[in-house]
């Protein structure tokens, strides 16, 4: 328990000291969003129809950038070695690292996506659906991203994306559908997303621990 608390505050401190961790995904997200109307059309009707998908794709890509390097620093500087020396539960390490990363990178993006009501004419009445689906969906994506990062630890980042993006496809589909369709279907999609979350968290965590262990042989 003491370890949990101290490790959590350590992670929070590291993220808060390096503001680029938080700012880079935000900048990337905003640039992506800004480019879509310029490249496709500035017609409010069309944009508001495309908005849920655009927001989801941009969040997926922006989140991808930071989650993939989640274990890289601890691996490169030898901190992971120390976890093994003291036999810390790697499950706790993995879960806390993913959660803190989510707080610092996904949460700002979710809050920022509220502004899409103005930028992409996202229909206001569906905003809650969007936020709800983003909350669950980004968590699942974080787990997939962490697995991709763990598998390709010390390798190029394109590989990590090639692993993470196909895995995230169901989340993208369910999430963007949840924020597109009328209210009676929402609970259906949100429940599916929740089911996917509870299904993938144990599997992906275990796979993640195994994947990190691979680099210590």
């Amino acid at each position: 328990m003491i370890f949990l608390k101290s490790f959590f505050s350590r992670e929070v401190l590291i993220y808060s000291k390096k503001s680029s961790n938080v700012i880079s995904p935000v900048i990337f997200f905003l640039i992506c969003i800004a480019f879509f109307p310029l490249a496709i059309s500035n017609d409010p009707k069309e944009l508001s129809r495309l908005a849920p998908g655009l927001i989801w794709i941009c969040i997926l890509l922006a989140g991808m950038l930071s989650i993939q390097t989640i274990f890289k620093e601890d691996y490169d500087d030898g901190s992971l070695d120390l976890f093994y020396v003291r036999r810390f539960s790697m499950l706790q390490v993995v879960l806390i690292k993913i959660f803190v990363n989510w707080i610092f990178t996904a949460l700002p993006l979710i809050l920022l996506s509220c502004s899409m009501v103005f930028l992409l004419y996202f229909p206001l009445e569906k905003l809650l659906n969007l936020i709800g689906s983003l909350f669950i969906g980004t968590l699942i994506i974080s787990f997939f991203g962490a697995l991709a990062g763990a598998l390709s630890l010390g390798r190029n980042s394109i590989l990590a994306s090639a692993i993470m993006l196909p895995l995230s496809l169901p989340v993208l589909i369910l999430g963007s559908s949840a924020s597109t369709y009328s209210s009676e279907n929402i609970t259906f999609f949100i429940l599916l997303l929740l089911a996917l979350l509870f299904f993938s968290v144990p599997i992906i965590s275990i796979a993640c621990i195994g994947a990190i262990r691979l680099h210590y042989e």
């Binding site: 590291i14 000291k17 030898g78």
Partner: peptide, 12 residues
Amino acid sequence: YLGHKNALKHDL
């Protein structure tokens, strides 16, 4: 254990 790498966080 004192490893080859220092396990220091550069921003702290």
